[in-house]
Simulated scan of single mutants.
Amino acid sequence: MNKAPVGVLGGTFDPVHNGHLRLAMEMAIALGMDHVRLVPCARPPHRNAPTASPGQRAKWIRVAVSIEPRLRLDDRELLRSGPSYTVDTLASMRTEMPDTPLCLIMGRDVFAHLPKWHQWERLFDSAHIVLIDRPDIQTELHPEAEKTLASRAVDDVRHLHDELSGHIYSYAPPPLAISASRIRDLLGAGESPRYLLPTAVLDDIMDAGVYMPSKPQPATAANQ
């Protein structure tokens, strides 16, 4: 086959920031991907709902990747009703791209709990997994995740190009310590997160007032 794979990077992207974007670019460049799709989750099954609306999060990704052809927004989970299950997302991509290898990108800390995901074993029917290793994150794998890693691990990136799905490839990108929670905390405290996320995204967040501290209500005669 030897066809350039398509990367799939999911998350709430609440908001999208330079850490997400740089990681996606690292994957595209280092692993020879055709492009990487950023897939915002509408209703994450295992965590609280995002603060920003689906429309806002999709808009920010669209703006952030508008000048980079190797990064794309994929909003299918936002358009689908019900919980956002990754197995369904990958199956629909596989239907659309029957001859293209797909690579689901996730951190080792996420992979550690993969057996708790909905129909997790079916993920490998549609995609490979690219496992992001970070030296500052140590985690113990669920026994089934450890067993799966041992049986599916490959150390040659060509497997991601030559086969459609089924392998796990580990990659350690250069460190870039940026998080969406840190950005939300700064905005909530009235501080600036500039240079942690694209300027156009920050400008829109400021205009819309998302994540900003609540303004105190003016005193009235009744509560003075």
Score class of each variant (00 low, 15 high):
Asp133Ile: 10
Leu90Asn: 00
Ala180His: 08
Thr95Ser: 07
Ala172Arg: 05
Asp204Glu: 15
Thr220Gly: 15
Pro216Gly: 14
Val210Gly: 07
Ala222Thr: 15
Tyr195Ser: 13
Glu26Ile: 10
His167Arg: 00
Tyr171Lys: 00
Arg194Ala: 11
Ala200Asp: 15
Glu146Gly: 14
Gly107Val: 02
Pro40Leu: 07
Ala208Pro: 05
Glu96Val: 00
Ile137Lys: 09
Ile205Val: 13
Phe124Thr: 10
Gly32Met: 13
Val110Thr: 14
Val157Trp: 07
Ile67Ser: 10
Asn2Asp: 14
Leu23His: 10
His118Arg: 11
Leu164Thr: 10
Leu186Val: 08
His167Val: 00
Met1Gly: 14
Val87Ile: 06
Arg184Ser: 01
Glu26Gln: 03
Val63Ala: 12
Asp133Trp: 04
Ala189Ser: 07
Gln138Val: 11
Asp207Leu: 15
Val39Gly: 01
Thr220Phe: 13
Ile67His: 14
Gln224Asp: 15
Arg62Ile: 00
Gly7Val: 11
Asp99Glu: 08
Asp156Lys: 04
Asp185Arg: 04
Leu90Val: 06
Arg152Lys: 13
Pro50Leu: 06
Asp88Lys: 02
Glu146Pro: 00
Thr51Lys: 06
Asp204Lys: 10
Met27Phe: 04
Arg37Lys: 09
Glu96Asp: 05
Pro54Cys: 05
Ala177Gly: 00
Tyr169Leu: 07
Ala222Asp: 15
Asp109Gly: 11
Ile61Tyr: 08
Val87Gly: 02
Asp125Lys: 07
Arg57Asp: 04
Thr89Asn: 00
Leu164Trp: 10
Ala42Gly: 04
Asn223Ile: 15
Leu186Ser: 05
Ala221Val: 15
Pro143Gly: 10
Glu140Met: 12
Met206Thr: 13
Tyr211His: 09
Val157Met: 08
Arg182Ser: 05
